[in-house]
Computed example of a mutant assay.
Amino acid sequence: MRMKQSAFYNHLALLFISHFFSQIQANHESCPLMLKNIESKVDDLWQSLLHPVALAAKDIKEVYAICEMKPSSTLEAEKPQVTGQVLFKQTYPSGHLETIISLVGFSESDNQARAIHIHEFGDLSNGCDATGGHFNPMNVSHPGHPGDFGNFTPKKGKIKKHRKNIKATMFGPNSILSRAIVIHEQQDDLGEGGNPASLINGNAGKRLACCVIGIGGKTLWQSTFLSLTGNSMKRNAKGSERKSS
């Protein structure tokens, strides 16, 4: 079925291009403008075929995604039972990706840095173990993968972070949509561990929790962002008061 759909879309694209070339032959004096128009329309066509969200994104500009974190079904009961959300926001077609990481489930005294990565498959059929390795479309060494987010240290049992300029994207053939996010038990050694695994996964250890990235709405992003930045402003204000006193 997929092969038939692919063949249909390829045929559609060829017909589309053929139509425009026939228009060029009929209007050869306006070739530069026609070629620019073709380039734009063909790009839009392929973007919509590669990932449907791109077509919708042209109208709404800002695209949002959500990943609902749950403990791995294969995780031992004594390990941290991490839940929460990882949110994304990006402007179509080439804006920088932003993320909000909002996780709970660590003990109050837990100060172990944890690695967070995007993994290749959105498959949770065998807990987080089914998500495969790191999402690595460019076939480069760790920590150069687009979903190598680095390390996050819980504070009072929570991880709350907002990051901009993430290397990954929600658009095109290397979209992170439908892939998995995994939080690991250990710290990412960022490729400096001195062994082969360091350049593959950062020796980050057991997979505690995971989720699959899907399209979301802006309401949750806005409320979470306001909560995060509001708390940060309050902490800064209290710090300024203490210094002034």
Rank of each mutant, 00 (worst) to 15 (best):
S102N: 14
V86Y: 06
S107E: 12
R114I: 02
S107T: 13
A130Y: 00
E98Y: 09
T131H: 02
L87Q: 06
P143S: 08
G84C: 12
F135Q: 13
K89M: 06
H119Q: 09
D110V: 01
F106K: 12
H117Y: 09
G133I: 03
G133L: 05
N136D: 13
Q90F: 01
I118N: 04
K89D: 01
K89F: 01
M138W: 10
N126E: 13
G84F: 04
L97S: 11
P143M: 08
T131D: 05
I116F: 05
G95E: 04
P137V: 15
P143Y: 02
A130G: 00
A113C: 07
M138I: 07
G133E: 07
V104E: 11
S109T: 15
A113W: 03
G84W: 04
F88M: 07
F106T: 08
N136W: 07
E108M: 03
H142N: 04
D110E: 03
D129T: 07
F121I: 02
D123S: 11
G122I: 01
N111L: 09
R114L: 02
G133K: 08
L97V: 12
I116P: 07
V104Q: 14
S141D: 15
Q85N: 14
T91M: 14
S141H: 12
K89E: 04
E98G: 13
D110T: 02
Y92G: 04
A115R: 10
P137E: 15
V140H: 05
L103M: 00
G133N: 10
Y92S: 04
I100V: 09
A113T: 14
T131A: 07
S102V: 04
V140T: 15
Q112R: 04
P143D: 13
D123Q: 08
S94F: 13
H142A: 03
N111I: 13
P93E: 09
I116E: 05
G84R: 08
T99F: 01
F88V: 06
N139L: 12
S141W: 11
P143C: 07
M138R: 14
D129I: 00
T131M: 03
L97Q: 13
L87G: 07
